[in-house]
Each structure stands twice: as structure tokens, then as C-alpha cells.
Nucleic acid binder design. Structure first.
Length: 537
RNA sequence: GCCCCCGUAGCUCAGUGGAUAGAGCAGAGGACUUCUAAUCCUAAGGUCGCAGGUUCGAAUCCUGCCGGGGGUGCCA
């Protein structure tokens, strides 16, 4: 049996369509007994008559064509104010995870340059999912997977080496397929600052591995700093290369070979993915004909490490939609490793197009004119970036307009939400300055429609979090935040909290508790999104 | 060709089997001796891409089509 929240207030706080859903079965059963047929309204009335008494439940109504509409007891609702104030943000936390160990792997962009702005969406989604899970009783690890091996890294290292040589006046060209961006010169300068000209004597064969190492250090430091600007921090930076150094790759290869999952065709080693996927006859390259393991080989070794070596119960990978094909073949890998594919969830999100007042800005890393995440963050700030990137469902594309994001006016919902928190804080601050003490209050005085609506809205927060976790849909948060802020502002508009009239003192104390509860709920929601909760604006 | 995602108000988007499809912004009209007007109130605005189907009930599920984007065996 399910209950849902109806759209219209007169249809109750909770509604149940059970009578409509079961009327057929009921009538079939009655027919067997040759009894008179029933109908949804009758069934609803029967259910309502038998509902047990509950302090939570107020009146219950039957509505055509067979809904049961339930209203919360306003007294109980008002009393929740005190519960929220007492328990703080814990009031809104549900123990969904029960200590399950979950890893969220996100961003994981190639370490060959600064993050472009598309990476910011990945960061926002991944980090917010991690926050949602942490707040729902999961033990969460945030991981960045560093693709520190393979061809792109070599080209990166060679470009860096040439830039370093150029800085010392040596006439060399960067490779034709190299990284032309100016940031590569900046990286070379950093290496020059640390190493001076001591590396100039190296041969190309010596220099490239060395510059791989040095370059990786420079880039990952920069990535970490830039992501920090967005309040995104990783518990672990995992090296792809390490899978080949610690024997994981060898071990997994042996395992698959023993299972007869590998075969040779066209000088390459193939993984028999097709035997694990019922509707596919497609296998995957495991080791390329040039002897290098393909990325799928790394993926298998990596996930062996995640599940078997490190024992995560659940792993979530946040990938851009252009990896959809890769995502589709992950279940084959899981089955080959003897793991339940359900334990791995790939969250796919669509791309971000960046605009500046309608004009599209390209985000390519290989072209020199890219817009980095850092540049955008410096301009719009982490709060606006996170809010706007989160407010669309993962599958939807985003047009991110920088001019709109920085607009400090009512076109921008970011500030509306934060402004509500600032207002709440301002009232509490003022009350404190007046020496008021609202720890004891008669909460049954909270009877105004806007007061009860506000409470009701706060009670929805755990449901929103639960749904966001269940669907891995962080976009529910900004929509809820706006809704909560709006509900508060309507209360603020209708109900005076502080009053100089002593006759209002009791009501004022109750309302101060309500305001404090709102502060807790708003701050918690902002916290889940990784946004700041300003005390004043 | 095949696979995945999207198509909802003028714009940006929620709504993933329930009742009268909702917000924000823009546009129209109104409200400031205020606990912060970065605000509030009112009205207006929709063939939910199109056509079938399943269901008591479909924006939501199924099929086909149209439009946009992405993917499509040795880059990741």
C-alpha cells in the first residue's frame, strides 16, 4: 500500500488510492462468495472506519472516486517544532544505509590539464550524492580515479618536456598531437622553479617518464585546489598505474583466462563480454594489438580492487553521458568477477553548454580557448555554481549562463534561498540581542496557516532526501530548497515574530522556536548541496 | 542502420501510474512608518512533440513516427 502527497491542500497532507487499486480483487473475492459487489467508495469507508487512533493523524476523509485523504493533527504538527529544535539536523536524517560502505567515484578527469567547466557538474553531482548518502547512514568514501597511464599521458609528458626546454631557450616544437594550451607553459614554469635547469641534460627517453611524474604532481595539486574552490574534497586519489604495479591486473588476467573469458583475435586479446550479456554478441578488447591493455582491462582490474580488495558494498561511478556505451558493458565485467551487477551503479549526466549572455563558449581541452572550472568559479562563486548545476535532472542538458549565475537579483534563485536563511538568522540574532529566552514555549499557539504549512514543508525534507538517495537524483534538493525558502518567506510576510507588546510574548516565543527550526532545516538543506548558509546578506 | 537521453507555460525547468499538470524568471496589475523589499499579493499564460495501445485512471508504462543531442569493437 502506498500513500502519496496530493497536489492540492484540500486533498489532505497524505492521500491513499488503495480502494481504487484493490476494488477488482475485492469484487472477485465477493463474487466467489456470491456476495454483493462493492465499489471504491465503500471500500474507502470501510478502511477509514477501521483506522486505529493515532496522535499523528487528524481528520480523515473519503473522496470520489475512492481516495482516502488524511490530514495531520495540527497539534502534533505544531509540536514537531520542539522536536526539530531539540534534535537539530538529526531530526531530518534517516538511517537508510545502516552502515553500508559505499564509494562514490567522480570527476576522474584525465590528469592532463585543468578541469573544464563540464567537470564542475560531475563534481557537484558526485559530491552531493556523497553528502546525501552520508546523511542517510551510509559510510561514504569519495574517490578520484587518476588515469595516469596510457598514450594521452605520454603525449602530455612530451609536451611538458618540450615546454620546459623552450623555457630554457632550446628550439624545439611541441608534438603535433600534443597539448597546445598555455597552461602547459605554466606547468613547465612550476617545474622550472623547483628543478631549475637540472633536467635539461636528460635524453628524451629519460625525460618523458620524469616529466610524466612531475607533471602528474603539478596537475593533481591543481585539480585538488580547484575542486576545493567548489568545496569538493576527495578521501582517496586512486592511481590507475598502481593496478599494474601491485599485481592486480596480472591477477585479474589470470582469473579471466582460467574462466575462459579471454581469447585472441586479430593480434588482440578479447574479453568474452557477450557470454554475460543476454542481448549482446559483442566482445571487448582486453589487450590491444600493440600489447597495451585497453581501458576496459583497467576497468576490470579497478573494480576488482574496489569490490574484492577493498570490499565496498556499493559503488557509484559518476560519468558523463558520452560514456554511456562503457556504462552498458559494466554488468558483464561484474558478472565475470562473480559480483552482483546491482552493486555497481553508473550515474550518467548530460553535458553543460556554457554561455555568456547567450553566446556559447566551447569547452574543449585540446583547443587553447577553453574555459576552465576555476575561471567560472572565480566569477560566479561555488554557491551559485553548485545550485545551478544541481537544479537540473542528471539526464537533462544544461545551458549555464554565466551572466545569469552572477546576477545578484531575483532572476537568481540561489540568492532567494540564501536570503531566507539570512533573514531567519537575523530574527534570531535580534531576539538574542533583546535578551529573549524562547527555550520554553507553548507550541500549540502555532495555528496560523502559514505556520503549519511551513512545518509541513520541513517534515518533507527526510522524504526528499530518501527519494534523492533512492533515485540518485540530487536535483530534488535545489527545488525543495526553493520551496522551503518560499514557504518561510510567506510565513514571514504574514506573521510577526518579534513584538514590543508584552501580550504577544507567548506567541513570540513559539514563533521563535519555529524560526529556529526553519534555520536548522534550511541550513541542513544548503549543507546537503554543499552551499554556504549566510547569517546575513 | 542499431542503442541511449531529451521534447511540458514566452524563457529555464520540476513532475517517472492518481484527483483541477506545478515552480522560478520575463510580461500585466497591486502592496514598503518592515523582524533584511534580494520581499509579498492578484490575475493571465499549456492540443504535456504527434498517433495508436495498456489501465478504473497516462505527462508518466508499451508500440510507431517527428525533432534535438549523444554513443556505436583496439582513445578514455
Amino acid at each position: 500500500m502506498t500513500v502519496s502527497r496530493p497536489r492540492h491542500a484540500e486533498q489532505g497532507d497524505w492521500s491513499c488510492a488503495l480502494p481504487l487499486q484493490i476494488v477488482r480483487d475485492v469484487n472477485n473475492a465477493l463474487k466467489e462468495k456470491s456476495a454483493e459487489r462493492s465499489n471504491p467508495l465503500k471500500i474507502a469507508e470501510t478502511i477509514v472506519r477501521r483506522l486505529p487512533d493515532s496522535p499523528i493523524l487528524g481528520r480523515v476523509e473519503v473522496a470520489r472516486p475512492g481516495f482516502i485523504n488524511m490530514f495531520l493533527n495540527p497539534q502534533w504538527l505544531a509540536a514537531q517544532t520542539g522536536e526539530i529544535v531539540q534534535q537539530g539536523a538529526d531530526y531530518f536524517r534517516l538511517p537508510l544505509g545502516q552502515g553500508k560502505r559505499v564509494q562514490v567515484e567522480f570527476v576522474s578527469a584525465n590528469p592532463t590539464g585543468p578541469l573544464h567547466f563540464g567537470g564542475a557538474r560531475n563534481a557537484a553531482i558526485g559530491d552531493t550524492l556523497a553528502r546525501l548518502l552520508e546523511n542517510s547512514g551510509y559510510e561514504v568514501q569519495r574517490e578520484y580515479y587518476i588515469n595516469d597511464r596510457g598514450n594521452q599521458m605520454n603525449i602530455f609528458a612530451e609536451t611538458l618536456w618540450r615546454r620546459y626546454q623552450q623555457l630554457h631557450g632550446i628550439d624545439v616544437e611541441i608534438p603535433a598531437d600534443g597539448y597546445p594550451g598555455a597552461y602547459m607553459i605554466e606547468y613547465a614554469r612550476q617545474i622550472q622553479a623547483e628543478q631549475g635547469d637540472s633536467l635539461l641534460s636528460l635524453s628524451d627517453e629519460q625525460a618523458i617518464p620524469r616529466f610524466r611524474e612531475l607533471g602528474l604532481e603539478v596537475v593533481t595539486t591543481e585539480l585538488s585546489t580547484d575542486l576545493g574552490m567548489m568545496r569538493v574534497y576527495f578521501d582517496n586519489w586512486f592511481s590507475e598505474q598502481s593496478l599494474y604495479e601491485d599485481g592486480t591486473f596480472e591477477h585479474v588476467s589470470t582469473l579471466l583466462r582460467e574462466q575462459d573469458d579471454l581469447y585472441i583475435k586479430d593480434d588482440a586479446v578479447w574479453f568474452r563480454a557477450s557470454r554475460y550479456l543476454p542481448n549482446s554478441d559483442r566482445d571487448e578488447v582486453f589487450i590491444r594489438s600493440n600489447g597495451e591493455p585497453g581501458y576496459y582491462a583497467s576497468d576490470i582490474a579497478y573494480h576488482y580492487n574496489k569490490f574484492i580488495t577493498r570490499g565496498f558494498d556499493w559503488v557509484i561511478n559518476v560519468w558523463a553521458v558520452d560514456h554511456q556505451n562503457q556504462a552498458a558493458r559494466m554488468p558483464a565485467m561484474m558478472k565475470a568477477l562473480g559480483l552482483d551487477p546491482e552493486r555497481l551503479t553508473i550515474v550518467l549526466y548530460d553535458l553543460v553548454t556554457l554561455r555568456r549572455g547567450g553566446q556559447e563558449v566551447k569547452l574543449s581541452k585540446r583547443s587553447g580557448e577553453m574555459v576552465t572550472m576555476r575561471e567560472v568559479l572565480e566569477e560566479v562563486g561555488a554557491d551559485a555554481a553548485r545550485y545551478l548545476l544541481l537544479s537540473h535532472s542528471n539526464e537533462a542538458r544544461i545551458d549555464f549562463d554565466i551572466e545569469l549565475a552572477v546576477a545578484q537579483n531575483n532572476e537568481n534563485p540561489v540568492y532567494y534561498v540564501q536570503y531566507a536563511h539570512a533573514r531567519v538568522s537575523s530574527i534570531l540574532r535580534k531576539a538574542q540581542e533583546q535578551g529573549l529566552d524562547w527555550r520554553q514555549a507553548d507550541l500549540s499557539l502555532l495555528q496560523h496557516e502559514t505556520e503549519l504549512t511551513l512545518l509541513h514543508k520541513m517534515l518533507q525534507l527526510p522524504e526528499i532526501v530518501a527519494e534523492a538517495v533512492q533515485r540518485l537524483a540530487p536535483h530534488l534538493l535545489p527545488h525543495y530548497a526553493l520551496d522551503l525558502a518560499r514557504t518561510f518567506t510567506k510565513f514571514y510576510d504574514a506573521c510577526r515574530v518579534l513584538s514590543s507588546d508584552p501580550a504577544d510574548a507567548e506567541l513570540s516565543r513559539a514563533r521563535l522556536q519555529l524560526v529556529q527550526a526553519t534555520q536548522i532545516a534550511l541550513a541542513h538543506t544548503l549543507e546537503l548541496m554543499g552551499m554556504s548558509a549566510p547569517e546575513s546578506m
